[in-house]
């Protein structure tokens, strides 16, 4: 039953990638910006969750909500301070700003609290092994999967069923036309950043509980992997990010399971290259022709 165990390992890892990838894809969908600071919002979320649990003695759910709220505000601040004034600048200028923002958050965090790692307390979620067909499923990983799925359902509801979601979809389709229809584009973009960052914050807390160790540079690799996941699923597509994330997690598990654990990170980036060569629009992306 090894393959089943590996599948579960992969899905747990992938659901974290998916949560981060959602933020990437939403921001890209709406302002065509790869927000490289997104991985660092994830890191900040992990730390806020840690301080909420360890410092204030809160349990998992309140810590998750506090971290999401803080990251939502943080994401909007990043957008307002760094990206808003570049909205009409070249895309490369915005991209470079995003990289700068990422470094600022990482090293700002090290400046504030130092580079040493922290360990999430082990008893945040009940940690019991469930034996199912010879497969060890940890109750923590079930909780985490459940949290991810619930968050994705809420997101899907917001995007498809609410007025704000409708505005988001309209802005991503055509910003100018949306403005002409009376939609507040600025407000919609801020809202997108808020939701994307809140999801990254949630992913941070989930990561902390699942992997224990958090540190200021922890966002770099998951951030890049989530970016790959977003491209894999079709950047700009919300279901694409979910599927891409889980798919990537499973592939990484398969690579390790086959005995190539040292190649695991390379596999993710090989996928990125292959996707960009053969199907740049990803699994769920639409082939759009450049408008003249």
């Amino acid at each position: 039953m090894d393959w089943l165990q590996q599948l579960i390992n992969g899905i747990s890892l992938g659901s974290i990638y998916a949560l981060i990838a959602l933020g990437y894809t939403m921001v890209y969908g709406i302002i065509k910006l790869i927000n490289f600071a997104h991985g660092d919002v994830f890191m900040v979320g992990a730390f806020i969750g840690f301080y909420a649990i360890k410092g204030w003695g809160l349990s998992f759910l309140p810590a998750l909500i506090i971290s999401m709220a803080f990251c939502a505000v943080f994401g909007v601040l990043i957008e307002r301070i760094a990206y808003k004034r570049l909205r009409n600048a070249t895309r490369i200028a915005a991209l470079i700003t995003a990289i700068g923002m990422s470094l600022l958050i990482e090293y700002g965090m090290i400046y504030i609290r130092g580079a040493q790692p922290e360990a999430y307390p082990a008893d945040v979620l009940p940690n019991k092994a469930i034996n199912f067909l010879g497969v060890h499923i940890n109750s923590q990983s079930l909780f985490i999967l459940l949290t991810s799925i619930i968050l994705m359902i809420i997101l899907q509801f917001i995007v498809q069923r609410t007025k704000m979601g409708k505005a988001m979809r309209a802005v991503s389709l055509d910003m100018d036309a949306a403005r002409l229809m009376g939609i507040s584009v600025d407000k919609t973009i801020s809202f997108t950043f808020a939701i994307g960052s809140a999801l990254a914050g949630a992913a941070g807390v989930v990561f902390g509980v699942y992997y224990t160790k958090i540190e200021p540079l922890m966002g770099v690799i998951p951030g890049l992997k989530a970016f790959v996941a977003a491209v894999l699923g079709g950047i700009g597509s919300i279901p694409g990010a979910m599927v891409g994330g889980i798919f990537l997690g499973v592939i990484e598990s398969i690579v390790s399971a086959a005995g190539f654990s040292l190649w695991r990170d390379a596999a993710a980036f090989v996928i990125l290259i292959l996707i960009l060569i053969f199907r740049p629009s990803g699994i769920f992306g639409k082939n759009t022709r450049e408008k003249v």
Binding site: Q5, L13, K213, M218, S253, S261, R264
Partner: peptide
Amino acid sequence: EESYVGKDTDFRATLTRIKA
């Protein structure tokens, strides 16, 4: 005989392989 790279955080896949 398995190995990991320093700074990794997810060892579950390789550990499952060892467990087998």
